[in-house]
Computed example of a mutant assay.
Amino acid sequence: MLRPKMILIDVDGTLVDSVPDLAFCVDAMMERLGRPPCGEASVRDWVGNGVERLVRRALIGQLDGEPEEADFDAALPIFLELYAENTSKRSVLYPGVIEGIAFMKGAGYQLGCVTNKAAQFTEPLLRDLGIREHFGLVVSGDTLPKKKPDPMPLLHAAQHFGVEPAEAIMIGDSVSDVKAARAAGFGIICMSYGYNHGQDIREAKPDAVIDSMVELEQLLAG
């Protein structure tokens, strides 16, 4: 791959395994609502499109479809309250993330985060896990009028850093990241381990798929 001038990185499923906290909050929410728990395995397939979408999926017990609006209106404040208290208690960085960030920083890449997670959760999570300081810009799901898979957050970051899209790479884990990168004219690298609704990310045809960010040094060596 051509050496980029800027690298943007997704958070959930790419840098951070946040499902343990999200699943805890989903199940606690369901308990308060008098409903059966969903379980971590189901939540792992549902994450990636923001907490509102996650709550809707939990209420109907599946990826696609819509709950009753009254049910959603009752559930969302409960989830937000729970997640504010449990943003990073169980979440962990994936193996290789620290080494990958160290390589990218050492190689002089400008680094940013682009996530669909709301800023009120993104910023504490990155700080609590000790990596916020490495990113010159964090674009959260509510920073701009549109979020991934729309290219707006990526193009916003490119403008912030003064970089052309063709000189930028997105690192993510889902088809949403691939679509956003393609629409923005970015290169796209995907992690094999992330959240993509149970589908193999290779089917989305990113430029490369890696198992650990440790592999970035060899991938970007050229």
Rank of each mutant, 00 (worst) to 15 (best):
residue 2 L to P: 04
residue 7 I to H: 00
residue 7 I to F: 02
residue 8 L to W: 02
residue 9 I to G: 02
residue 11 V to Q: 14
residue 12 D to R: 07
residue 12 D to S: 03
residue 12 D to K: 04
residue 13 G to S: 02
residue 14 T to I: 03
residue 16 V to N: 09
residue 17 D to E: 12
residue 17 D to I: 10
residue 27 D to P: 09
residue 29 M to Y: 11
residue 30 M to T: 03
residue 32 R to F: 02
residue 33 L to S: 09
residue 37 P to Q: 13
residue 38 C to I: 07
residue 38 C to K: 04
residue 40 E to W: 00
residue 41 A to C: 01
residue 45 D to S: 11
residue 47 V to M: 11
residue 48 G to N: 12
residue 48 G to D: 10
residue 48 G to A: 13
residue 49 N to V: 01
residue 51 V to C: 05
residue 54 L to N: 03
residue 56 R to H: 10
residue 57 R to M: 05
residue 59 L to Y: 04
residue 61 G to L: 10
residue 61 G to W: 14
residue 62 Q to T: 12
residue 63 L to Q: 04
residue 64 D to M: 05
residue 66 E to L: 06
residue 67 P to N: 12
residue 68 E to G: 07
residue 69 E to Q: 12
residue 72 F to S: 14
residue 75 A to G: 14
residue 76 L to I: 15
residue 78 I to Q: 14
residue 79 F to P: 00
residue 86 N to C: 05
residue 86 N to A: 08
residue 89 K to H: 10
residue 90 R to V: 09
residue 91 S to C: 11
residue 92 V to S: 03
residue 92 V to H: 15
residue 93 L to Q: 15
residue 94 Y to V: 01
residue 94 Y to I: 03
residue 94 Y to S: 11
residue 101 I to W: 00
residue 102 A to R: 13
residue 102 A to Y: 02
residue 103 F to A: 02
residue 105 K to I: 00
residue 106 G to Q: 11
residue 107 A to F: 13
residue 108 G to M: 10
residue 109 Y to I: 06
residue 110 Q to Y: 00
residue 111 L to I: 03
residue 114 V to F: 02
residue 119 A to I: 04
residue 123 E to C: 02
residue 126 L to M: 00
residue 127 R to C: 09
residue 127 R to Y: 03
residue 128 D to A: 15
residue 128 D to S: 15
residue 129 L to C: 12
residue 129 L to R: 13
residue 130 G to N: 08
residue 131 I to F: 14
residue 131 I to Y: 08
residue 133 E to N: 11
residue 133 E to M: 03
residue 134 H to D: 13
residue 135 F to Q: 00
residue 137 L to I: 08
residue 139 V to L: 10
residue 140 S to C: 12
residue 142 D to E: 03
residue 143 T to P: 07
residue 145 P to K: 08
residue 145 P to T: 11
residue 146 K to G: 02
residue 147 K to E: 04
residue 148 K to L: 05
residue 150 D to Y: 07
residue 151 P to I: 07
residue 152 M to Q: 15
residue 152 M to T: 15
residue 153 P to D: 10
residue 154 L to A: 10
residue 156 H to P: 06
residue 161 F to V: 12
residue 161 F to S: 14
residue 163 V to E: 06
residue 166 A to H: 05
residue 168 A to T: 13
residue 170 M to A: 12
residue 172 G to W: 07
residue 174 S to E: 04
residue 174 S to L: 07
residue 174 S to T: 14
residue 175 V to T: 14
residue 176 S to M: 08
residue 177 D to S: 01
residue 178 V to K: 01
residue 180 A to E: 10
residue 187 G to L: 07
residue 188 I to R: 11
residue 190 C to K: 09
residue 190 C to F: 02
residue 192 S to R: 15
residue 196 N to Y: 08
residue 196 N to W: 07
residue 198 G to C: 04
residue 200 D to M: 05
residue 200 D to Y: 07
residue 200 D to F: 05
residue 202 R to F: 04
residue 203 E to K: 15
residue 207 D to K: 04
residue 208 A to N: 12
residue 210 I to Y: 07
residue 210 I to R: 12
residue 211 D to P: 00
residue 213 M to Q: 06
residue 214 V to E: 09
residue 216 L to F: 06
residue 218 Q to I: 06
residue 219 L to P: 03
residue 219 L to E: 09
residue 219 L to A: 05
residue 220 L to G: 00
residue 222 G to P: 09
